[in-house]
Each structure stands twice: as structure tokens, then as C-alpha cells.
Design a protein around this nucleic acid. Sequence first.
RNA 1: GGUCGUUUAGCGCAGCUGGUAGCGCACUCGCUUGACGUGCGAGUGGUCACAGGUUCGAGUCCUGUAACGACCACCA
Length: 896
Amino acid sequence: MAKELAKQYDPKNVEDRIYESWLKGRYFHAKVENDKKPYTIVIPPPNITGQLHMGHALDNTLQDILIRWRRMQGFDTLWLPGTDHASIATEAKIVATMREEGISKEDLGREGFLKRAWEWKEQYGGRIIEQLKKLGSSCDWDRTRFTLDEGCSKAVREVFCRLYEEDLIYRGNRMVNWCPCCNTSISDAEVEYEEKDSNFWHLLYTVKETGEQLELATTRPETMLGDTAVAINSEDERYKHLHGCHVILPLLNKEIPIVCDEHADMTKGTGVVKITPAHDPNDFEVGKRHNLPVVRTFTYDGHLTGAADKAEADEYIASGKASADEPEVLDCGKYAGMTTMEARKAILEDLEAGGYIKYIEPLKHEVGTCYRCHTSIEPMVSKQWFVRMDPLAGPAIESVEKGETKFIPERFTKNYMNWMRGTRDWCISRQLWWGHRIPAWYCSNCGKMTVSKTDLDKCPHCGGDVEQDPDTLDTWFSSALWPFSTLGWPENTPELEHYYPTNTLVTGYDIIGFWVSRMIFSALKYTDKAPFDTVLIHGLVRDAQGRKMSKSLGNGIDPLDIIDRYGADALRFTLATGNSPGNDMRFSDEKVNASRNFANKIWNASRFILMNIGDEDIPCKLPENLALEDKWVISLYNTLVKEVTENLEKFELGMAVAKLYDFIWDVFCDWYIEIAKIRLQNNDENAKAAKQVLVWVMSNTLKLLHPFMPFITEEIWQTLPHEGESIMISEWPEYDEAHAFDAEEAEMERIMVAVRAIRNRRTEMNVAPSKKAKVYIATAYKDTFEKGGVFMQKLASASEVEIADSFEIEGAVSIVTADAKIYIPMGELVDFEAEKARLAKELAAVQKDLDFVNNKLSNENFVSRAPAAVVEAQKEAKARYEEKIAMLNESIAKLN
RNA sequence: GGUCGUUUAGCGCAGCUGGUAGCGCACUCGCUUGACGUGCGAGUGGUCACAGGUUCGAGUCCUGUAACGACCACCA
């Protein structure tokens, strides 16, 4: 039965069917096999709110390449998938849809809201997983995890409690980044700085003791109601007389001290800074140093505080439940209830009216914004939970220094180190409902707080009623545990035992700080092991113009759309090729097009093979007798195996795939298949041998390509003679010493050079390919060219080929290669003058090469200092050039 | 302000441990060549950003400069 394949490869006909067959075969499933070496990757869990974008496509393509390769190599591979609950993003999304229905979080209450959130998760949370399958991802879906599932929650509680017991987690009133839109604190890492136009407002405060006007500048005049001091530098000669004095705070007419603090920089502005401990991180530190009151003037939703806010705070402080560092709240009077921007305007107007503004200086200013909603963040003192970073960062730095985890490319180690060294305590509490609720309970009776792994309903101290902390944890707190929480930690499961520590983490450079570093310090703390040995960093996928893909620009390219139009293999090939680790890449239709063409090329090569096999029973096995061209292609394939494997080991995926491309297209299709056609014309043993080699090389090359282009390789492999169920569980080819045919490679090379030279000459002379001509080859390599003669007929339009030591031929075009002198009699076609000119030109070119080599060889220093092999190579080149020059001269002489 | 990256053919990019510069696309010319025009063959096109240095020899190593970009940073 002749197998018929379509003329063009249509991925739509194969991808889903093949993916189904893989799932059915359970090839993705990892079951602990202790006799095999494990290879583990945990997926960077995409947000449940997410839709597959190019970043995911790249990230997961790389992971799938690695995991498929290792699986074929015989490792017990686990690619563990899952999703992230993404607290802020998800909550914001749900709140937004609720708003459209006219419902607020408060309407539903916490429980009702969470119910709705889980429903949302059930409905949409799996969407991205389905999209990953379209890419061909070979994750063990049976082990799909969720950062908010039971196991992860257990790990989160365990970690929280242990850290708390060790005093590595604490609760306190600290300066945090507050997003008035999301209504929650966010960590330093979640603040993005954006340049905005603003002003420096130069204000005048009156010194109480001396009556002089003290000039100071501020970018945030709306915070002035919360000023509790102004600072000067103690060294500053201009203000020495003011030490110990006070200023009158305008508008409030409140007396506040002048303090000396290093924070006041003499070289900046007037050297005087207003201090607002409640709403500026630096000022907060200054306030602590000088025991200044902390006066909060903003509400958490971004308005100025009023009488009610003050009353509430006063009552809380009076109740005794508040800690000593609880900030005061100001009744901002006429400004109460204004947004910060409204307040800025009103306050400036009043300051202006009072003559307190000296002048206004325009300024470009980096303003912190929320990474989710891009609202300007307000630094705010508030009571939050923090992870103490210093004790955790130390070992994390050491571990990477020792090489327990390597970054690829290496330069990102520095990036990581900078982040680790510079990091401040990590604010982990969020004023959100969707997430891991903080396992701390407060007693309404004795006021004590208890942190507990299990839920409490009574106070363990006094038996009074308790209430759980309403806040939830930063999403990244649970992501930080992902490499081990997903394997069962804190239980010592067989999975944890076998697959942990994991091997490779594949992620973008943009989340080294957010995620990679936190996994490393968490893993070291809890498992005593680095969570992975290698971090493979990739860059961003940009649009064809090199711009970042973004919603606002509308230049995003949908991977699913690309898969639909070109196929998943073409997409994967595009993403894997032509770029090196850590560098951004551009994505364009032309590139996918080229990848699609490659897929089609492979498809047609296999179509050719199948067409020739027909009904014959051809084993995927090399024949006994190998022809020159067989040995040549096998030898090159053998080298390919070695190099691709080495490239993969070094994570040079782009290089590996480029070599596959070159081999398949240039070596296998353009040369080997063309030459094989000669034997295939007949129906004999030689033809059969050729078919076997075609099948064998193709089939094995498909294996090498499979990690990159899983669908098409599977489809073709299944159609070709093969053994086994699926290419994805076939054995990764290995380099075979017996298949290294150096001599045949060299022989083929001589012939190929001659073929190219003949084609070249014919083209130059505008000889139509259909016009055949006899070829005479004068060469010392008679054996080689005897074998290559038929190739010349097929590939170089030779009618027949004659080989001898030398020829005396008049009126022929002559071609000189390093190994042969070739004559093609073309009668009237030969223009003697043009031929002479051409030969002269070629002679000049070779002469130039010879000069170059001679120049080197006559350099005493080169001969004495360069390695012997290099010198030897130059000498050989010299001999070659000289020989060629002699032959060219001979040809020219004959024309005269 | 700090750190890092990029700069190679018209465009997009490779070039690992230094030994006369490659790939894809585009372009030019030719080809109904029994797998593929999503193809085949032959070409055009680069003083490897700039200036020094190390070396027998530098796209490759070192120093500096410039342009662009990224990340980090509390700059009132």
C-alpha cells in the first residue's frame, strides 16, 4: 500500500490528533522510578487570569525542548505544571466584573466573595492550561498544581509559622507602598517607576525663635499637614544658628522642631527638608531617629483624613490593642475627604494666599506606580507583616557564589546578587481577600496574638474569642515555595525525595527579583538545598519593530493565532531559533513563515522517501554495503548528533536547532536526496540500500528534531518504517565511532567542490541546465571522481564524464579546483577572449590568497610562535594555491 | 546616580575557549530539474560603532569613547 501524503504539510490535520495520542499513551506522566536519574522542571505558574502570550510561548517552548530531550535520553523526567492564584490580579478582575453588576466586595462579604472567586477560578483558571497544550507542552498534567490548593496552603502555613517562631517574620507599623486603587500594600518589587512631569515647590516656613523665613523644596506639598519636623544637616554652616529651634507649620500653625539629620543633603536645594514620617520612607527613618510623632493624613483609599478617621484611630489607640508605634491620625479639617490630588491643589492655593510659596520649579520626576494598575503609589505607614531579609539573603548569596545554582547566561548572576544584596525587608501582607490568609489570630479578650499552623477558635492563652488576621499573603510568598511545595513538602514524599532539588528553571530576566531569588532563599531555608541547579534566562519577545508587546500599543501577537495559521511547530521553531539566552528577540511573520517553510521541506522530504518505498518492506536499519554518499551523509549525521547533544547540554538551543536546519535542508535534501535519486531509478539491491539509508537518516534526524518540532516529527516518524509506539519515547541518538567516515567525507567534499564549480561556470556562461555537455576531469584523485562521475551527470548537467591524469583538449572551458582540472568542450559557446579574462581574474584572486599565506609564512614571528598545527595548515594552503596557479597558467597558455 | 546589555551585509540575527567573516529574509540572474515554486541553481552585498592596547595574529581579550536599550536606586 503506497502511503500518500498531501503535497503540503497541514498542521491542523495532525496536531490535536497527535497530542491526544500522547495523552492516551501517558507519556507525559512521571512515576517515580528510583533506578533512573531524575530530571525535573517546575513550570513558572502562569496566572489564572492570564491568556497565553508570546512570553509564555517562549518560556514553555524552551522547557518542553529540554524535557522532551531528557525524556528521550532516558531520564525519569517530570515537568510539573500549575497555575498561580495571582492575588491582586485576580481579585481586581473579579471586583471589576462585580462592579459591572453593581455589586461590591462588601456586599458579598468575605465568604461570598471567595466563593465567587473560586467559581471564577474553576471556570477560567484552566484556560491557560488548555492553551499550553496547543503548544505541545509535555507536562505531567496529572500533577497539575495551584498555588492556593491544599498542599500549597499547607506549605505556606508551615513556612509562615516557622519563620515567625524564628523571628524572621514580624508585624509592625512600617513604611509600605500603598496602592490607593487596589487598596492594599504592595512590596518594593511591585512598584514601577515612571517619569512624570511635576514641580518643585519652594516653600517658606517661619522660624519661631528668629522669625526668619526658612526655604525648603518639596515635590509633594499635599503631605505637609503631616510634617512633624524639618531637617537640616548638622554640618551646614548656613543653619548652625538654628539648632534646637522650631518652625511654624503653615496652614496648621503648628510648632514643629528643626532637627539635625544626615538625610538633609547640604548640596541639594537649600539643604532643608520637610519631614513627613507617615508618608515618606526617608522621613519615616528620620522620624525614628529623632522620635518624631508619626501623623497620618491620608486614608488608605487615597483621601485626606477627617474627624471620623481621627476618632477611629484615637479609639483604637485608647483600647490598648494598638502597638506603641501606632501612628496618630490628623483631622485635616477643610481638606478632609479630598483626594491627594485635590488636596495638593487646595493646599497650594492656601499656601499661595498665605505667601508661603517662594517659587515653583518644573521638574521631571520618577513617580512610583503600582505594577498592576499604574496608580501612583502612596508611601504610607501602616501595620503590616514583614519577612526579615538579612538572615535569609546571606545563605542565598553564598549558595550562588558556590555555584550550587548557575545562571545562564552567567551575567544574570550579578543581577541576582545585586537584588539580594540590596533588598529590604519584604512586606508580605496584602489587604486582599483572595489569597493565603495570614495564620495569626487576635484575642478580643486578652489582646494577645497567636500564630498557628491550624485554625483557632479560642485563644490558647485565655480561652477568649479570637479573630483571624483579615489580610492575605503576597502571591509571591506561595510562589517562592513552588519547587518543593508542589512535590509534597513539608511531607517527605517519594516525589520530593526523587525529583527534588529540581534541575532547570526557565524564566525571563524580568522576574529574577520577584521570584527566582525568593525561591532560592526559601528553598535553602527549608530544604537545605538550592531549588534548582540551573536558571535558564530568556529575554522578551518583542514585535517586528523591536517594541515591547503591550495591550496599550495593541501590538501583541497571539500565539494561538500563530499556531492556527502556521502550526505549533513553526511557532516553536521560530521561538527557539536565531537567538541566544538572555537576549530579547523580535517576532515577525516572516520568521514564522520561514519556519513553516522548513516544516514543509521536511514534510516533502519524507513524502519523497515514502513515495519511493511504496509497498516495499524497508527496515529502519543501515544496509551492509554503504556507498560513498551513504557514508558521507551518515558521517555528517553522526557529527550532528554529537554537536546537537553538546549544544543542548550547554543550553545553546538556538545553535542546536540551526545545525538541524542546515543538516536537513542543505545536506540531506539538497545533496543526499538528489544523489540518492540515481540509485532509486532502478529497482535493485542498490536502490533498496539507498532507501534504507534514507529512512534511517531521516528517522534518526527526526528524533533530534523532535524536542523542537514535536508534532511534525511524530507524524512523519509514525509513517516511516519504525519501531516503538512514539518518537517521543524513542531513544535519543548517540554518537557512534563506527559511523565516523572521515575519508568519505573528504572524498565527497572534492566531488561537491567540482560540482559547484561546474554549475558556477555554466551559469556564468548562460548555459541552460537542459543543455548537457561532456565533462573531462583531470585529477590525481581518480578513484574519487570515478565514483563521483554519476553525481556530475545528475547534479552538474554532464552528459558523460571522462577521467584521466591529464587531457589535451582544444576549445574547452576549463575549471580549476583544488583537486581537479575540469574541461567542458562547448564549441561555439566558448568566447576565447572572455574565457581568458575570466581565467586572469581567477588567477589574480588565487594570487592574492597566496600572497596572504606567503606573507604569514615569511613572518619569522609567526613561524616560531604560532602553534605548529596552524603553521602546517598555512603551508598546506600555500601548496594548494601554488598548484592551482600552475593549472590556471597552463589553461591560459593553451588559449593563446 | 549605580549595574548590565546591545552595536557584524538593506532588514532580523549567529559567530563557543583569538587563526584570511556566516545564516535567514530581501535583492539580481536563471530553472515547469518526477519530494517540495512554502522549491532548485548561481550571484550582489560587510574597513565586524569609534579610538587605543595586548598578541606572530583581534569581530573574538583589555582600556576608554559614543549611540541605543534594560534593570536597580529613598534623591527632598
